[in-house]
């Protein structure tokens, strides 16, 4: 996939508008969704998308192949979106260093999530810290590999993994109270 992107970008650098349109067709939608997720504003997300592709058009020649084209585009889009985020900068996340990656046994939050219905999870998603929502958007919305997310966010791959776990835990905490692990312990108590 990246080979196609590289070829397209190479042609864009040479001024090929058709290649530019192809690149837009391939990545416009996920980038717009990412921008809209970040900004929560359709108008500014569309501006972000335009500026991202204008920057790509101008800067295609300076792409050095250090990352995939897709990662590069998401990186540009992120900078464009952040520059529009004057009022509400994403809140820095507290305490991410310790990644408690569960092994073997599913944690109560995993159980709660697996049981929750789609509406409850969607509602919880809206409550999530912006940075947590962003990493989920990149991983499950845009379908970026963890290494690519690390590149876009400028953090180590290990931090991407732990941030995903933290995001999931935050999601489970934001679920309405009647769904979560209480039901499990209640059943156990009843035995």
């Amino acid at each position: 996939m990246d080979d196609v992107d590289r070829e397209l970008l190479h042609r864009v650098a040479a001024g090929d508008q058709r290649a530019f349109e192809d690149l837009y067709a391939r990545h416009g939608q996920p980038l717009l969704a990412y921008a809209e997720g970040l900004l929560a504003d359709r108008g500014r997300a569309e501006e972000t998308l335009q500026d991202t592709f204008l920057a790509t058009w101008r800067g295609a020649g300076s792409f050095e192949g250090r990352s995939t084209v897709r990662t590069w585009l998401f990186g540009i889009c992120r900078r464009q979106a952040l520059s529009r985020m004057t009022a509400q900068r994403p809140v820095p996340l507290p305490m991410e260093a310790a990644a408690e990656v569960p092994a073997g046994e599913p944690g109560p939050e995993a159980v709660a999530l697996a049981r929750a219905d789609a509406h409850a999870v969607a509602a919880a998603l809206a409550e999530l810290a912006p940075a947590h929502r962003e990493v989920l958007d990149l991983a499950f919305g845009a379908g970026l590999a963890h290494a690519e997310i690390a590149e876009v966010l400028g953090i180590p791959v290990g931090t991407v993994k732990s941030r995903l776990f933290h995001a999931r835990a935050g999601l489970a905490r934001a679920l309405p109270d009647d769904v979560p692990a209480v039901g499990v312990s209640g059943r156990e108590a009843g035995r």
Binding site: G28, Q29, V121, L125, D137, G141, R168
Partner: peptide, 27 residues
């Protein structure tokens, strides 16, 4: 079974995020 339950939780998250992103209109 433990990892299967973990995966189910991730799938739930993935679906929710996928739904949310799909709700954004195409350019």
């Amino acid at each position: 079974s433990g990892c299967t339950a973990e995966l189910a939780a991730w799938r739930r998250v993935a679906d929710a995020v996928g739904d949310r992103v799909a709700a954004f209109a195409a350019p």
